[in-house]
Design a protein around this nucleic acid. Structure first.
Lengths: 142, 142
DNA sequence: ATCAATATCAAGAACTATTCCAATTATAAT
DNA sequence: ATTATAATTGGAATAGTTCTTGATATTGAT
């Protein structure tokens, strides 16, 4: 069985379990939202969207679900300055470009074969577990 | 005149004005603290340190001073995840390496001649105003 | 030097994003 | 079916930061 709710058409099929995390109805819907609306929503954005399908869900549950998904490496949490955290299902190592004029956040991939140590003077012996690259700027409309 | 308080020995001399910002006594002490203790303190860290010299200063004023200094490009505000903001007087374009074991934050400089566009697939027409690079990991004690 | 205009400071209240808590409900294991 | 475990809920609590207001200091013009 893939979905527990065949009555509601599920545009994206989500299995009962992902990397050891039980996919409850709430987690499914949170995850589905992220997969469908890939514009880096905040927890509150997700909350409002998920309510269409689960009117009784609470914001605390959305936070719980997002945390569980992040913890299990299913989604990523992205922070800009001290703004609300945003969430994205793009698991590939990537950075973010924040367009100051539109507010839109674009995923930015690394060029193939790039090594951080080639670019940065890392402290000797540094073992990098996680990289976070955020760019802020404008998109020349030319 | 460089300092208004010759009675208090000032290890670091701070001018009356920096890039158009009037350097009041409070701003001087906040700035001096950052120059002396370069371990990326939080607003509260700065508050506690500055109190030695200005016992009547308030946390709100420290926030105001930090904001004014950031706004005028005299110091930088650095954010890790959703933790308290940290502040540093290192104005050169640099990233941060967060040592997970000690909690120490190291400045990380770019290797000379590195261009972001060589490393990242930027959206076409992107003009970058600000870059933020945060690394998390461990320092191999070898 | 005096005065008005402006900027800064202080203290606490207010705000926002997030987390915690206790009670309920759902799921899984026996 | 019963019990144990985990998830959900709603509201209260928290932390960091910002806002507000009145007081204080500084500047520039006279």
């Amino acid at each position: 069985m893939v979905s527990k709710t065949p009555d509601i058409p599920a545009e994206i099929e989500i299995p009962d379990e992902i990397s050891g995390l039980r996919m409850t109805r709430q987690r499914q819907e949170v995850y589905r939202t992220l997969m469908q609306q890939r514009n880096h929503p905040t927890a509150n954005d997700v909350f409002m969207r998920v309510k269409d399908r689960l009117p009784h869900i609470s914001l605390a549950t959305v936070y719980n679900c997002l945390e569980a998904l992040v913890q299990h490496g299913i989604i990523r949490q992205v922070n800009f300055e001290r703004e609300s955290s945003r969430y994205c299902p793009n698991l590939s190592e990537h950075g973010h470009f924040h367009d100051a004029t539109t507010g839109v956040i674009h995923d930015v991939d690394f060029k193939p074969g790039v090594n951080l140590a080639d670019v940065l003077n890392l402290p000797p012996g540094a073992v990098i577990d996680d990289v976070e690259i955020t760019l802020r700027g404008k998109l020349a409309s030319a």
